[in-house]
Amino acid sequence: MLELRLVQGSLLKKVLEAIKDLVNDANFDCSATGFSLQAMDSSHVALVALLLRNEGFEHYRCDRNISMGMNLGNMNKMLKCAGNDDIITLKADDGSDTVTFMFESPNQDKIADFEMKLMDIDSEHLGIPEAEYHAIVRMPSAEFARICKDLSSIGDTVVISVTKEGVKFSTKGDIGTANIVCRQNTTVDKPEEATVIEMKEPVSLTFALRYMNSFAKATPLSHTVTISLSSELPVVVEYKIEDMGYVRFYLAPKIEE
């Protein structure tokens, strides 16, 4: 028996909006500690890892570990029927081939349940090793989204370089080149507006902008984004979900032959 009641149902709606274009089908894994997902995009270049910890739910019951295969497009269709202020409850019986999403309006005057068919998904789970990152950049998520969108109108790839001067996002295309440098800036009114750069070593990596723009769909989940870089390792683009967990995107760098 599985029953997860999320008072801030809009969080789940935002999570689906963030990942549905990157991943078609995925297994949601539910255990006593939380609700999680790990999935690769169809071309196996990027990986998304989601964690929603049990303590973030108002009610969390998961009698035994269960993996539920869902088509994220279909799941998104169902979650779009929930209001932004609705409480969302996920329910599944042991051995059932369906999951039920229950939506309750804040004043309990409307209760809806949507039952969705589960699917068998043969997915590979990857082991993500602990890594020491050469540079970690924390910046406003909206700023990062803006940079990726702007650069993708010029080129297809972004070079992200961290030096003691700051973090530089560069691209080039047929019409010309673009460079955007963000310096560390902690003298801001609110902590979420800060740009903080922790650098152990300078690092410079090249990534496909198409994926970065896809990751930026998680912007509504968090005011800040954390970008962790090490040479010859996938970048980690992390959006923390307040009091609950995170959505992390991993993207393999492009490598010179």
Partner: peptide, 14 residues
């Protein structure tokens, strides 16, 4: 230009 490797080149299957 640079080549795009798969993420599985960096992370091993469990």
């Amino acid at each position: 230009g640079p080549k795009q490797p798969a993420i599985t080149k960096f992370f091993s299957k469990l």
